[in-house]
Design a protein around this nucleic acid. Structure first.
Length: 480
RNA sequence: GCGAGUGUAGCUCAGCUGGUAGAGCACAACCUUGCCAAGGUUGGGGUCGCGCGUUCGAAUCGCGUCACUCGCUCCA
């Protein structure tokens, strides 16, 4: 596979109505995409398969749909605000990026002296002075664009004075105001992950459903991250859809639960979505690479045309989040275990996957170029295909369109069907191959005599003669 | 965010050193066609990403901007 391959998928997505660039008539909006008529069906199919498998296959997992906007203190508690508010600068020469306070802490005193002089900041030769400098540079970045270079701030990587960019701050979270007036409105954030909505509701869910540990809460919803860079089509976008399941366990049983979910989630991709094992692998986060809340973390990665990329994270978040929310809210968030007769904060095993990434994965996995027959085929499994059947009159005359409409009306009650009478029959088959439609039903003159049609299979191009009232039976038998 | 490259019809692209926009495919109508694309006729569709500038005149040159691709960087 190659990048060329991805380009072809992007082109197919636009051509056939899977994915369009957002705001295209205005020149586009970076890393923002819209899902077209076929795309919305595929996306829904994937999320339905996930939702059904989570909430039906496991009797101790229930669903939730929490709101995108929550009390701002939630993000204080979760660590999202504290961990992402550092002023940064880039050295254009070495192309390295630094936190300004870290960078200044590594400078000789004369550099700090000189900075204080340039900026007229009181110099106490301490960390506070460094903080003052970096905050000042952040607030006045326009005026003092070149202050760092002027003062001779050294790049520890190159050992030379850096060619520094103006100091900027990256905010992961989208911030806005609740209430129509900016003055009186409260500052709120669009959620950067759906998980927190589960944590703050976990006791309400547990009580209302009379759940006992271990139990899980599943949720599908949009999340927003102000990514510094967004690349690779819909792989990393600022607005995206998460499918998360947070599993609450006895702290002593966390390792076992991790093991269980690692296997379950890997199986999901291979058996439920039909992804080839050789395109899937685990990636374990090394200890010094773990997020601030995690004890252990595994990613499931897929072999995309642009390389291996994360499609799901399975993390042991311990009791970090619940304890944080307890601390910040002042409410008791312990779970009472009636069997052990004790109270504790459950450990949380998180399985978190990105719907948009699965969408891209599915397209990459099932995109095929059939060079023998000179056609492009999207070999989507039946359950994922946006349209299941295409109904075609062999010819656009002799009452065949009318008969086809009858067949269409009958079958569309059961399957998502599409009707096509335009062009030669072969062309119509090929058109639908590219859109992933698994079966073609063709009405011909014989149909008028004995009510039988031709069913043509997308992947093998084989044809079968089937009576109209046995079509469902045939398809249900053949579809997987 | 930094660096490099790209941006002409829905798609893939042509358009040499500046002189009033082209092809193939796709799409639509009619004909042809009796089961696997590319047969015929006709037609719709582009202020050449956007803006400013240089010029008598710019798709073609310059600057800016937006978007995409690649590398670096970042990634709760």
């Amino acid at each position: 596979m190659s990048t060329k391959h991805l380009d072809k998928i992007v082109a197919l997505c636009k051509r056939k109505g899977f994915v369009f660039p957002n705001s295209e008539i205005y020149g586009g909006l970076k890393a923002s995409y819209d899902y077209g008529p076929l795309g919305v069906e595929l996306k829904k199919s994937i999320s339905e398969i996930w939702w059904n498998s989570m909430t039906r296959l496991y009797s101790n997992i229930v669903g939730l749909d929490s709101s995108i906007m929550v009390h701002p203190d939630v993000w204080e508690a979760s660590g999202h605000i504290a961990n992402f508010n550092d002023p940064l600068t880039d050295n254009k020469d070495s192309k390295k990026r630094y936190r300004v306070d870290d960078l200044l802490a590594q400078q000789k005193t004369k550099v700090i002296d000189s900075l204080c002089e340039i900026l007229s900041i009181k110099n106490n030769n301490d960390n506070e002075t460094i903080d003052n400098i970096s905050q000042f540079l952040l607030k006045n970045s326009n005026e003092w664009k070149s202050a760092l270079s002027e003062a001779g701030v050294i790049d520890p990587f190159s050992g030379n004075v850096g060619n520094w960019t103006e100091v900027t701050q990256f905010n992961l979270m989208f911030q806005t105001n609740a209430g129509p007036s900016e003055k009186t409105g409260k500052s709120i954030f669009l959620r950067p992950e759906t998980a927190q909505g589960i944590y703050i509701n976990y006791l309400l869910v547990q009580n209302s459903m009379r759940l006992k540990v271990p139990f899980g809460i599943a949720q599908i919803g949009k999340a927003f991250r102000n990514e510094i860079i967004a690349r690779n089509f819909i792989f990393r976008t600022r607005e995206f859809e998460q499918m998360e399941m947070q599993y609450f366990v006895k702290p002593s049983e966390d390792n076992e639960a991790m093991k269980f979910w690692k296997k379950e989630r890997m199986d999901f991709f291979s058996t439920k979505l039909g992804i080839d094992d050789k395109n899937l692998r685990f990636h374990e986060h090394s200890e010094d690479n773990l997020a601030h809340y995690a004890k252990a973390a595994f990613d499931i990665e897929y072999n995309f045309p642009f390389g291996w990329g994360e499609i799901e994270g399975i993390h042991n978040r311990t009791d970090f989040d619940l304890k944080q929310h307890e601390k910040h809210s002042g409410k008791n968030l312990t779970y009472f275990d009636p069997i052990e007769n004790e109270k504790y904060h459950p450990y949380i095993i998180e399985t978190s996957t990105g719907l948009n990434r699965l969408f891209l994965m599915v397209l990459c996995e099932f995109y095929h170029e059939d060079t023998n027959n000179n056609r492009t085929v999207l070999k989507l499994p039946f359950d994922l295909a946006p349209n299941k059947l295409v109904i075609c009159p062999l010819l656009k005359k002799d009452g065949l369109p009318e008969k086809s409409n009858e067949v269409f009306n009958k079958l569309s009650k059961e399957y998502r069907c599409i009707y096509d009478e335009q062009g030669s029959i072969g062309k119509r088959y090929y058109r639908q191959d590219e859109a992933g439609t698994p079966f073609g039903i063709t009405v011909d003159h014989e149909t008028l005599e004995n009510n039988s049609v031709t069913i043509r299979e997308r992947d093998t191009m084989q044809q079968h003669r089937v009576e109209i009232n046995k079509i469902s039976e045939f398809i249900n038998d053949k579809k997987n």
